[in-house]
Amino acid sequence: MEIVLWVLLGIVVLLLLFYVFTYNGLVRLRNQVKNAWAQIDVQLKRRYDLIPNLMETVKGYMVHERETLEAVTNARNLAQKISDSGAAARSKAEGELSSALTRLLAVAENYPDLKANQNFLALQEELASTENKISFSRQFYNDSVLNYNNKIQMFPSNIVAGMSGFKTGEFFEVTAANEREAPKVSFS
């Protein structure tokens, strides 16, 4: 009789331990997803900050490209303005900013003086790297969401997730069709 009691107690303890570990694991993954999202944000803001510098450097050389320059500035301002709204709208605005930047840098090819400018060269590296960082932070975010969703949907952790109300995360998709090639910031 006593043995049965102990066995039952043991099972309860094991179940509790399983619940605690799984719950903590889920929280850790959810925090990783949140943190990864914040990382994307950091890099997008960094791009907003770089663009005025780029404009300042470029405008003296590219006097005949007013339209291209304005397109970048407008895209930047729009993206920054709606940076608090939903992921879908934001992703679209960022995609447009990327393509505007690509156009500008493609046009810069025609200005050898500009390409010899130290400031511009440094900015070029920073912009290319920021584009990479945006891609990599998005990659890490999507990987994190995938791991988190797997954990939520797979047995047996899905029981704990269902009991404690963990919800699957959303992937950060690229909406603008041309965004995929956009970070190819080629200058030569």
């Binding site: 290319a128 790297s129 584009e131 990479n132 891609s135 990599f136 995929r180 970070p183 910031v185 200058f187």
Partner: peptide, 18 residues
């Protein structure tokens, strides 16, 4: 092994041209 399933080499990168 179960980690990070998005396996394709899709991440865009700065081109090596520059």
């Amino acid at each position: 092994m179960s980690l990070a399933g998005d396996s394709s080499q899709t991440v865009s990168r700065a081109s090596t041209a520059d």
